[in-house]
Amino acid sequence: MLLSDQTVEPGEVFAAAGWEIKPEGACRGPVCVPLGEATTVQAIAQRLGMPLVTSDSHDLAALGPATVSGRALTSAVAPDLELPLVVGDGVWRLADQRGRRTVMVAWAPW
């Protein structure tokens, strides 16, 4: 996740990455990681094993994904996803698929 302003609120940053900051910790689906005294973006990211990489030439940083499970997925709960439609206008939200089964296929022209 790109951070162009590293003073942004931690709750906002981690919500965008799929983690909700609760009293018991940072939670995603059934998984909660205790945060202890961590309150800043950098400290919470460290708890979640999310590396922060900065650009030398631009005022930009990127927060990598969490590594707490050692796998790409932390739980089976599908994360929020919203992407622009190619055919038709507007956006598609994965949440709108509730009640239908979905096979999400990644492809590329290259």
Binding site: L83, W92, Q97, R100, T102, V103, M104, A106, W107, A108
Partner: peptide, 8 residues
């Protein structure tokens, strides 16, 4: 079942 294609 819906197929959703995501072009990367």
């Amino acid at each position: 079942i819906d197929i959703v294609t995501v072009c990367l």
